[in-house]
Design a protein around this nucleic acid. Sequence first.
DNA 1: GCGGCAGAATTGTTGAACAATCCATATCAT
DNA 2: ATGATATGGATTGTTCAACAATTCTGCCGC
Lengths: 219, 219
Amino acid sequence: MERETGAMALSARIAAIIRERLIAGAFRPGERLSEQQMAERFSVSRNSLREAFRILTSEGLIVHHPNRGVFVVSPGEADVIDLYRVRSVIQKGVLAAAVPEHPALKRMDTLVREAEAAGARGDWAQVGTLNMEFHRAMVSLADSPRLSSRFDLVLAELRLVFGQLGDGAPLHAPFIKANADLLEALRSGEISRAHSLLEAYLAHSERAVLATFSRHKSG
Amino acid sequence: MERETGAMALSARIAAIIRERLIAGAFRPGERLSEQQMAERFSVSRNSLREAFRILTSEGLIVHHPNRGVFVVSPGEADVIDLYRVRSVIQKGVLAAAVPEHPALKRMDTLVREAEAAGARGDWAQVGTLNMEFHRAMVSLADSPRLSSRFDLVLAELRLVFGQLGDGAPLHAPFIKANADLLEALRSGEISRAHSLLEAYLAHSERAVLATFSRHKSG
DNA sequence: GCGGCAGAATTGTTGAACAATCCATATCAT
DNA sequence: ATGATATGGATTGTTCAACAATTCTGCCGC
């Protein structure tokens, strides 16, 4: 999983930088990203920047309006619902095919403990990141490179939503224990229990996001 | 779903043309696609062609080796297995959440009958296309734009494999009736029966592809 | 046969130029 | 004043030409 910004093509490097900022909520939803401004800001040619934009467009983080430019996506409640629907389908499917002694389980265990530590010291942003990583690891149980990479896109879009919402603690705090329980069920082979725990988690998380969402819209 | 080659950006139009040829098996697996040659072949600039290449790369139909160019993907058996694994996860997940009276069911019915007609007159290429459309429609039962668009990528990659294998009749012929049965089960709300029918179909189809695959490799 | 080296070919990136399109403002008729 | 229409400016879409960086190829010497 190349996440570095070191030895990749220039366009990919630029895309990675912009992606980070998008997920961090550095841009407002719907904001337009000017080619000229960003090109000179990163000291790259317009052509290279446009390639970077195309990468981010294919990832669903920005949208492209012909002859008007690219804009930061402005996800609505329908998008949140859709994202969680995709998560539900993929993650349930993974559980159904999961085996009890998979190397990814060890990584999930590590992540749970790191999340507990981060939560203890109040680092909620880190808890959010670790939560995402936990579910990424969970999908890797399926041993399917394509499924994992597509799931990554879903999570990236979701992180964008989180970033736009301000990434508050209450969004991630309750889920540290949920992940621990889920992992426990998986390790002991209780698939149907894991299934219902996952279902509860997704429903709960979705509701929390939607609640924060509408609160944002009115306030 | 814009599949036309009419009013889209130039790069997207070029990408669409190349995609068609890729799926039709016009290129050999692993073949290198030269920027210069294709640029002048389509009478577009190298920049525009590179954008088209990037689109196809993000769709998984070609791979990009830095400083070496783009190559037609050369899927191995592992890729076929992976593709069917993704299909299994997604399509089973869709069935689990499907409702009995969905507009997509009507489209599936139309497609089944068109496939029967095409099979009767021996147009197996068309049967293959209609089969793909059938499963596309099935995924649309989930009412999730993101799930559908990602599933489309999986099917496109699979069609690329078919194209490279020569797209023989025996690959699609047996599945006309399987689709009809699956639809029947869905309409009558027998979800678990639909589930096992789908499972059988996927296993059968995967085996057929893998068999043709190894036959190709040796012959 | 094998490693290394120059030269050719190809991709990576840039900068500038022009066409096409959109947007906001100004103009005009009613 | 209001609405339609022109107009000009700004931005994107596309092309072209050039150069840098990298890979590939053929040749040489050993």
